[in-house]
Structure formats: structure tokens, C-alpha cells
Design a protein around this nucleic acid. Structure first.
Lengths: 198, 198
DNA sequence: GGCCGTCTTGGACAGGCGTCCGAGATGCAG
DNA sequence: CTGCATCTCGGACGCCTGTCCAAGACGGCC
């Protein structure tokens, strides 16, 4: 096998692990399945990771690194249009790989249950909030909205609640129409919070 | 061991299973852990269920049987007040046993991954919608709101999206303040949809 | 009282699991 | 070229998993 530094093997295994979890779920993500996916011998796994849990934690943290959906805003769009467009774009991305979102949900549940990983879901949320916050700030400055009375971070939390609701409900029903109606319903509220109207 | 009809043992095991999943997560819900919780010998399990998966499915369906939160409305309350009060009551119940909500999430993910159980999440959602629909109809008739242009079922779906968002986000962060702010933000929208204002 | 459907139960089975050991290969630093 | 830190990897360890069998105990009905 081609010789690689441990850091590179680490990333290979984390990515392979995420692929396996997305395909088979947490239940099927055994050490043997993961090394098979990565194409490395079994013993490599525990040369890199002290335990399977350590790898799961690494994988969950890895998810948070994925950048948000930076959008190019059309000129003359209202705030609500921009929010709706961004939300819809996120939803399209979601629909391309819904099994990944299910995987993330499973990993977060597993981490919640595992004492050594229980702090991670909060940290991942923190990353989400930061990335989303930047996007929202960008939108605000682009549209010339100043001196917000609702802090950006609070608006980001609302947006996250909205996407979380869509995620959970969609994964149960696979009903995209209902999701679109949900988007139609929440977007005005989110835009209002972002635009600071009362 | 006291002799019981299979149907009674079935319910005992389902309830024990749910307790174990709530306490240890899906990962720790082994057949042996479940029979220990129920206080029956191992072999009883496969006298009752053909497989562990069959029991998991039964447990997930069992969840949907739990009745919704029927509320006594104070006189002279506005529609928004009633919606907010109901939502808050649900949230209080949620806070009493959040680990159960996490368990439900894990079971739903597991079912999604298991071909023979993949149809269940949709069915459970259907039960939720029905129960919630009845509650909403009750509120509507109580407040004398007639001829809805937005079908009750659609409003119920919106409410479900809102509670799902709260559930998912809370389980990551355990941030009840953020949840309350979310409730404050969505309730007017939900009330508007229920009250049929545009 | 004897029968028979229903329920109980100890024990075993094969297979999969996470983890670990120790010997060998590799390739840069001196 | 030698030395040493780094990486590779076959194979095994003990434990736990879901599932099953076959023998026994119960208890209502003829």
C-alpha cells in the first residue's frame, strides 16, 4: 500500500466513514465496513484512531467544516426574495443527498449518547451559526440594512430551527411539496426578523 | 414466571424496549438488554417476535398511539394566545422527557434504513397529522372560525414542521431560551394560517 | 383425570464486533 | 550505508450479537 502520513490516512478514513454512514446508517458503519470502503487493512484503523468513537467524533466535526451556500443576489430583489432564494437553494442541495442529512442526524444522536462525544452537537451547531451569521450579515450589508435590533446570531438561530424542521419532517415523509409550503410560510417571518420590522 | 397471553408479553416487551432505547439509545437496545428490562428470559423474545426488527417496528408504531395535548382554552383568549399556549404546553411535556424525543428520532432513522420498516415513519407522521388536525379543528370551532381556506391538514403540517425544528435544534444545543424565541417567532405565523388571515 | 394448545426457558450456535500485538517494510537524517 | 521514526498489516483475542431448538410446565375443556 502506498505510504501516507497518518494525517492523510485520517482524512481518508473520516471521509470513507461518512460515506458508509450515509449509505448504511450508523448501524452498518462498523470498523470493518469503513476500512473496506477506504481500501485499507483493518489494522490501519487502530493505528490512526484510538477507538471507533474517536473516529465518529472526528467525522461529525468534519461535517461542520462544509461551507454554507454563498448566494449571488440579483439586483433589485427584496429582502424576502433573497431569503427565499437562499432557503430554496439550500433545499435543492438537501434534495441532492438527503441520505447525508439522515446520516448527520444519526451521528448527532450517537454523539449525544456517548459521554466522550456529547459536547460535539453543540459545537457543530456553533459552526453552523457562525457560517449562517456571516451569510446573513452579508445579505444585510448588501441590502443596506443597518443597526439591527434583532442580533444576527438570533436570526441565524431562527433560520436553523426552520431548516431543522424541514429536515426532520422531510426525512419522515419525503414530501417535498409540504417542504415548499413550509418554506413559503416561514420565509416572510425570517425576512421580517432579519429586516428588523416589527 | 407468571403465565401471560402473548399479546400482553408483546406490550411488555415493546414498552421495555422503548425505555431501554430512551436510556441507552438504539445502540444499546440489544435483545438481551430489552428482556432484562422487561424481566423475562431471553428465549421469550423470539417466542413473541420473529426478529428484533419486528419489535423495533412495533415500538415505533406504538409511539404514534400517544394522544396529543388536549388543552382547556381560557375564555376570551385570542387565536394566537391559544396557539401559543398549546405550543408551550407541548414544549413543557417535551422538556420533561427529552430523551424520549431523541429515542424517537433514532428509531425513525433506523426504520428509514431498514427496508421492511421503511414505510413506518410516513405512517407515524400520518397519525401525528390526524391527532393534531383534530386539535386544530377543535380550536377553530371553539373560536368560531368557519370555512377555512387553508385546509386543517396543511396547517397541521406547518405545526409539525415547527415542532420538528424545535426538537432537532434543542437536542443539539439543549438551549431552551432559543426554543422559546423560536416559539415566539412562529406562533403568529401558525395562528395566521389557522385563522385564515392573509 | 387426561389431553392439548399455549406459554416458558436453559442452553447453545455461528458469526460479527472492537481492539490489539508484533513483525516487517519504508524512506529520510546523519 | 546505518539508524530510527514512521507506517503497514496478517492474524488473533475475548466478548457480544441475533437467532433457534427442544424439553418442560401450565391450565382450561372434554
Amino acid at each position: 500500500m502506498t505510504r501516507k502520513p497518518a494525517s492523510a490516512r485520517r482524512q481518508d478514513l473520516v471521509e470513507a466513514g461518512l460515506r458508509v454512514i450515509a449509505r448504511e446508517g450508523m448501524h452498518g458503519a462498523t470498523v470493518r465496513a469503513i476500512v473496506a470502503e477506504a481500501g485499507v487493512p483493518l489494522a490501519t484503523f487502530h493505528y490512526i484512531f484510538a477507538s471507533r468513537d474517536e473516529m465518529i467524533g472526528e467525522a461529525y466535526a468534519y461535517i461542520a467544516e462544509v461551507p454554507g451556500t454563498g448566494a449571488a443576489l440579483p439586483d433589485g430583489a427584496t429582502l424576502e426574495d433573497v431569503v427565499r432564494a437562499s432557503f430554496l437553494r439550500w433545499f435543492e442541495r438537501f434534495l441532492e443527498h438527503p441520505e447525508y442529512e439522515l446520516a448527520i442526524m444519526e451521528v448527532m444522536a450517537y454523539c449525544s449518547r456517548t459521554p466522550s462525544l456529547a459536547h460535539l452537537p453543540g459545537k457543530v451547531q456553533e459552526h453552523y451559526l457562525e457560517a449562517l451569521g456571516e451569510l446573513l450579515e452579508h445579505v444585510r450589508s448588501e441590502l443596506g440594512i443597518a443597526a439591527p435590533a434583532v442580533p444576527t446570531r438570533d436570526v441565524a438561530r431562527l433560520v436553523l430551527h426552520a431548516t431543522d424542521g424541514l429536515t426532520y419532517a422531510w426525512l419522515r415523509t419525503r414530501d417535498s411539496d409540504a417542504s415548499l409550503r413550509w418554506i413559503d410560510a416561514v420565509v416572510p417571518m425570517l425576512a421580517a426578523a432579519l429586516g428588523d420590522e416589527r
